[in-house]
Design a protein around this nucleic acid. Structure first.
Lengths: 351, 351
DNA sequence: TTGTACGCGTTATCAT
DNA sequence: ATGATAACGCGTACAA
């Protein structure tokens, strides 16, 4: 195909391959004359260096890998976009990999990236279903390989890697305080899978917010989903069937919220009237809902930027401290007053 | 980092590098004994072949590139997901590139992929703003390089490359017929940028649908957007300001529809009552809207599958015919009866 | 079946 | 500043 090599360029320019190489890779030890002739020849022949050979020799690829768990989740595609833009600004190409919520695909991608000798990796680590929060063998192998790596969004408990995450306490505190101000006392939580550190953090932050607002936590009001729409739908049905139905619910990610809202719509529930809803992730689908859903959101632009910056520090062998970004709560019409009377036989608020 | 090479494996197994290579690449000319020892050594040392070196030698990478125009558009992330899954099934790794609606980024990605010697490329071609529907110099260079390539979703007029696209006539025919059955006669169209072949195709299909239903086309009822939310918002304002307001509007993609619906919501318009809306792309945000928006959609799973299959054919030097997928229309509550009386001073339907 | 030797395209080294 | 040479890690003719 593109059989034009640096030798051809050198020949056309009347210099040695070494000189051509120096010119083309910006080595200052070149004469202006050689520079001019080589560049002309290269442009003339449409020379495109073979990245394989180049990095085989130089042991760098100017490429990083980004492993996310689901391209189709707007949360992660926003993150991917931010990482890509900032990496690009730093002269780094980004390979986006999609674990597809599947440990096997995660491992595949990791192996491929390792064999391609990327200069670094930004990873949203998948916990394994079985071993909660622990690294897979492949991930451990990547860690052992000492390739520069940072975790983003999530962390893993059994491995020490710099990470960029987001806290939820601030926003959940505001959310719960707001709900309480509207008269809500029984607030349910539809959470994520235990193997994701974000699921754990959000759950804990929720409980902390309840206590900070003088409400008692209640395991019965917690539904364990898996961050995906179907489990949100299950959670919605669980919520409706609750024998002493809460007056509000907080949902730990947008895909679950979307699944839940579908169910509630079909059931004829009036969000913001019959009960109130707050969800994580500020995505179009939640804002389009009528009424628009109050959200807890993280700055994914900032997260992507911080992740790239952290990775570059690691690549430069600089020390890097963990980064924890803030969360923000935006009140919208899906939060209304708690119903005066219970929707079921039971009374209203509880002690 | 991972300094373990095939030599190390060979040494540990007590064979020559050549034998180790043969074993590891499945060459049948190996003794069971050698096979066993080499495989044991490889596993033991955590050997991972250097992809750079391997493909430098073998001139294949088992990798394809997918260039889309916007990761954050669900339409394209669905497509990316489908391509990735089918490529994976065929033993191909996919590099997803994000042109970010920017010709420079498209060219960057193309150059990088070319220099990495991917085995093939699936491209959603970006037209340049200036030269409508024409290939950029870089894209032309890629074409000249003879690297296996197929276009997906869009095509380019000045270059001959196999493509997988989707037609809109069937669904738009149904959509317009449905609108007409509901009494609509003046139907607006918010279209995409001319340099995208899909924008052109959808516009033409819309006009054809009008004529097929005995309605006359009217350039005044066409608004030229750019497939992005802000232009959809502009289109929505244009629609409201129309001196003889149409009773229905068809929008050519979801991002524009979302932008438009925001404006209409703020303006207090009642979709499905004041006027009816049909949009391309069946995405969560449109389904979550109240009322849910009637959609014209394409099967992106099928599109991704067809694209991968077409590319594999090209890679095998087989002939490949262009593929055109069907569209489907789903009626939802955003389509209602045309208002009996004009919302403005003018009367109702027109001749 | 196995080993030796060479080359893929590039850059680092060491001379000059 | 430039050129000759070796080497990156791997696969494959060729010879044995």
């Amino acid at each position: 195909m593109n059989a034009v090599t640096i030798k051809d360029v050198a020949h056309a320019a009347g210099v040695s391959p070494a000189t051509a190489s120096r010119v083309l890779s910006g080595n200052p030890a070149t004469s202006p004359e050689a520079r001019e002739r080589v560049e002309a020849a290269a442009k003339n022949l449409n020379f495109l260096p073979n990245a394989q050979a180049r990095s085989l020799r130089s042991t760098k690829t100017d490429t990083i890998a980004l492993l996310i768990s689901d391209v189709r989740n707007p949360y992660f595609s926003d993150l991917a976009h931010a990482v890509e833009q900032h990496a690009r600004a730093a002269g780094l190409m980004t390979f986006i990999g999609n674990a597809n919520e599947d440990a096997a695909q995660q491992d595949d991608f990791l192996a491929t990236m390792l064999s391609r000798r990327v200069d670094g990796m930004i990873v949203v680590p998948q916990g394994l279903g079985e071993q909660a929060g622990n690294a897979s063998d492949m991930l451990r192998r990547v860690v052992d390989s000492k390739i520069p790596m940072v975790f983003v969004d999530r962390t893993l408990s059994d491995v020490s890697i710099p990470h960029v995450t987001a806290e939820s306490h601030a926003a959940l505190g505001q959310a719960v305080a707001t709900l309480k101000a509207h008269g809500h006392r029984r607030i349910a939580f539809i959470g994520g899978p235990e193997h994701a550190s974000t699921a754990l953090e959000r759950h804990q932050a929720f409980d902390a917010a309840l206590e900070a607002n003088g409400l008692s936590t209640n395991p019965d009001l917690h539904f364990a989903g898996d961050f995906r729409p179907a489990s949100g739908a299950d959670g919605a049905r669980w919520f409706l069937a609750n024998e002493h139905r809460p007056t509000a619910v907080v949902i730990a990610d947008a895909p679950m919220a979307i699944g839940a809202l579908r169910v509630w719509r079909e059931a004829g529930a009036r969000i913001g009237t019959d009960f109130s809803v707050v969800s994580f992730d500020e995505v179009d689908a939640l804002l389009m809902h009528e009424p628009p859903i109050a959200t807890i959101s993280h700055d994914l632009e900032a997260m992507g930027r911080a992740a790239v910056q952290a990775l570059r520090s690691v690549m430069n062998k600089e020390a890097v401290a963990p980064v924890e970004l803030n969360s923000s709560f935006t009140l919208r019409a899906s939060v209304g007053a708690a119903p005066e009377k219970g929707n079921h036989m039971e009374g209203t608020a509880r002690s």
